[in-house]
Every structure is written in structure tokens, then in C-alpha cells.
Amino acid sequence: MGFAINTNNDALNTYRNLTGVQNSLSKSLEKLSSGLRINQAGDDAAGLTISTQLASQVSGLQQASRNAQDGTSLVQTADGALTQAQSILNRMRDLAVQAGNDSNSPAARTAIQSEATSLTAELARIGSSVNFNGQNLLDGTTPTFKFQVGADGNSQSQIAVDLSSSNLVSIASKLNVGGSGTSLATTDVAGKTLVFTSTNNTTGAVNTSAKITVPASSTTTGYTDLQKTQDAVSALNGNSAFSANFSASVYSTTAAGVTTYSVAVTAKDGGAVTQTSAATPTGTQATLTGAAASNVGKLAFDSAESAQASIIAIDAQIAAVSTARANIGAIENRFNNVVSTISTSVTNLTAAKSRITDVDMAQEMVNYTRANVLSQAGTAMLAQANSLPQLALKLLG
């Protein structure tokens, strides 16, 4: 190669290498000072896309965990009120049992009625006043609460809390004023296989029970019509296929001094019971026409018979509250599991993001040291390369 002055190839090559080393040194300083491997899109375009998605998912899951904890707080608030309601109903049942004795004077029965009425009013007050963040829980105004417990926008990321069966205002109303339902003769219920259907007047929802076989009443001498009716009512309420959507009560009417007992059926969602059918021995369905029944389940303590009917009515509501509490307990456990699962997911996703975005400090210090040494050496060599053209002066001497 010739000896040129205008173009110093050695200096240019040294400068090119030094520029690359300086860029590497700058990158190492940036990574070491931030602790991140990816500081701008050019550092790792694919890694940046993945890490951004992971960061969004982690942030969403953390908020979902807080949502689930809010859900736990809500159902715990509802359960606390239902616990008190159950205590009230138990006390009302004790009063009904006490009123079942004919040793009670009219004044004693009046006192029992007064306390039961007061307890029913308190039951309604609890239902109307219990709220979470300004939203009533137990009065039926908001039967379902939805909670976002996942980071995605699909149905699997939501949990619905159904409090429709926890309507204390409705329970108190049934015990105080009485609901409306369909009255069926005990002979049409006892010993028959039945199917119940109801239609909600507001939502149009249709509920149909499975076939229910009600045991025949005892034929023992002295077994009264009331006792036969009570047996039928207990058998219906004790059937999960029936009690999921319906409630049975002893219903009585008095005409010309004669009291007739029948089975009153009401729908828990407030719908009208539109048909009751029974399978005949040949297997066909025979439609039963029931009469309208008013004040179904209303508590009365003026006689031993009324007290027994009240016990059955209260038992039905105690069972309803117990079922509601069981559902709430299951939802609470579900929320707790959600929080635990989210915690594990956040830990694993954060670790995955860290492996993509966080710099390995030890490795980067090795790179920095190497680049620093090469930078100093390159600077020294560039100075030497720049001094080489000065050798041409010796040719002039």
C-alpha cells in the first residue's frame, strides 16, 4: 500500500472500531443505570412486545385481586346480616312452639304475637338497611352483583354473585302480610307424583321442578287433616328439586265454623304458580286446578293449630336463609381461591417479564469492562494513527 497523506486509512479504521466500542459502552452504561435490558424498542423489538403484554396482564391481575377482595367483603357483609336474621327467625320459631300450648291465655298469645310482629319488622329493617358502598344487598333491588376477577374481557374473568335468595324484605313480608300462591287440596298432593311450574310476571322466567313423589299421609286413627297437610308440606319443602324455586305452606280457610286445610305453593321469585300436574297410575299427566291463596305463610298464634302452621312457615324461611348463607359461603370460598390463584399467576408472570426486560448485572458489567478497556485502547491507537502522516516530513529532510 502506498504512503498517502490525504487519506489516513489506519485512522479511519481505528475511528470506526472506536465508534462501535463507544456505542457498546454507552449501551452498557444505559442498562447498568436503569437495570433494564430493554430501554428502547431497538434493544429488542419482539421482547418489548411480549414484556408489554405481560406487564398489562400483571397490572390487570393485581386489580382483579383487589376486585375479588371487594367481593369477599360484600358477601361477608351479607352473611353477617343473614346470621342475625337467622337468629331472629329461630327466636320466632321458639315463640311459635311456645304458642302451640293451649295452656297459654289470650293475653299470653297476644304478647307472643306482639313480639313476633316486632321481630318481623326488625327482619324487614335489616333487609332494607344492609348495604355495601351504598348498594343495598338484601332487599332484592340488586339481585346479582358481577365482579371482574380476571385480566381479560371474557366471561371466565367474571364471577356473578346471586343474592336473589337473600331477600330479607320479601321473607319478612311473607311472614307478616303473607304472600299469594296456589292452594291445592291435600288429597291432590299426598301420595302423588307432582310437577310444579311458575312464571315470573316481571322477567317472564319459567321455573319447572323435577317430578316429586310426595309420600301418602298416615292412616292411623286420630291423624287429623292438619297433620296430613303438614306431612305433605314437609315432604315438599324437604325436596331439593322443589325447594330450589318453590315453597310450600299450610293454608287454612274457615267457613261455617269448619276449617279446611290445604297445601299452598308459592314461587320464590314472586312468580305465579300456573300449573301443578300429577302422574296417574297409568303414567299420564292430569292437570290440577288450584285455588288462589292469600296471606300464605302469615304468622298467627291465636290457637294451637295456627301456631303449628306458623312453625312450618318459619321453618320454610329458616331453610331459605340457610340456603342463602350456604351459597354465600361457597362464593366467599371461591373469591378466596381466586385471590390465591391470582397471587401465584402474578408471581410467575412477573418472573417471566423479568427474564425478558431485566438486565443481568454481572454479565453487563463484563461487557462494560470490556468496552471500557477497548475504548481506552482505541483512543490511544487513534492518536497513534493520526501521527503516522507526520512521518512524511522526514522524506523532505
Rank of each mutant, 00 (worst) to 15 (best):
M1H: 12
G20F: 05
Q22E: 06
S28R: 02
Q40G: 09
G47A: 02
I50D: 10
I50A: 09
I50C: 05
Q53S: 12
L54S: 08
N67Y: 00
Q76A: 13
T77S: 12
T77R: 01
T83N: 12
L89H: 00
V97C: 02
A99R: 02
N104V: 07
A108M: 14
R109K: 08
T120F: 01
S128E: 13
Q135I: 12
F145Y: 11
F147R: 00
Q148R: 14
Q148T: 13
D152P: 08
Q158D: 09
S166R: 03
S170L: 03
I171K: 00
G181L: 01
L184W: 01
G204R: 08
K211E: 14
S217D: 06
D231I: 06
A232R: 01
A241F: 02
A241M: 08
F246S: 00
S249W: 03
A264C: 05
V273E: 00
S277C: 11
S277Y: 06
A278C: 03
T284G: 08
N295F: 05
N295W: 05
L299K: 02
A300K: 15
D315Y: 02
D315E: 13
I318T: 15
S322Q: 15
A326L: 14
A330E: 13
E332N: 15
N336M: 04
S345K: 14
D358R: 10
Q376K: 15
L382E: 06
A383Q: 13
A385Q: 03
L396E: 09
